[in-house]
Simulated scan of single mutants.
Amino acid sequence: MKLASKTPEHGAGDVYRRLAGRVGSAKVVTATARDSRVFFYNAMRFGTLYEDAGEYLYDRRYLKRVLKQLPRRSGEFGFFLQEVKTQNVS
């Protein structure tokens, strides 16, 4: 399970790497194993299919979360973010 979660093309691998720095490897292995069990249970019980969203979709969602939190986190350090308007040069 640990090896499968570390593969770059699997969504669980992205979750594993993101959480491993915060909570430690042992807890993340348990969490990703639980996710796999939940996916399997839902497939058996309700007939739902598991489709891995893939690395690209996960990265887009992660970037969206980070950008949403950026103004608040920068404010904690005393910074103020302001949008910069750029001109298209052809």
Rank of each mutant, 00 (worst) to 15 (best):
L3F: 02
A4T: 02
K6N: 06
T7A: 03
P8T: 14
P8K: 05
E9M: 09
A12M: 03
G13L: 01
Y16V: 01
Y16A: 00
R17K: 12
R18N: 12
G21R: 07
G21D: 02
G24I: 06
A26M: 06
V28I: 02
V29S: 03
T32C: 13
T32F: 05
R37H: 05
F39K: 06
F39W: 07
F40D: 03
F40P: 00
N42K: 15
N42D: 13
A43Y: 04
A43L: 02
A43Q: 04
F46D: 07
G47W: 10
G47T: 07
G47M: 14
L49D: 12
Y50C: 06
Y50K: 14
Y50N: 11
Y50W: 13
A53C: 01
G54F: 00
E55Y: 10
Y56M: 11
L57Q: 08
L57M: 09
D59A: 15
D59I: 02
Y62R: 11
L63V: 03
L63G: 13
L63S: 07
R65K: 14
V66C: 05
L70H: 09
L70K: 14
P71Q: 09
P71G: 06
R73P: 05
G75Q: 09
G75W: 02
G78T: 02
F79G: 00
F80M: 07
F80I: 08
L81N: 10
E83A: 09
K85D: 11
Q87V: 15
N88Y: 03
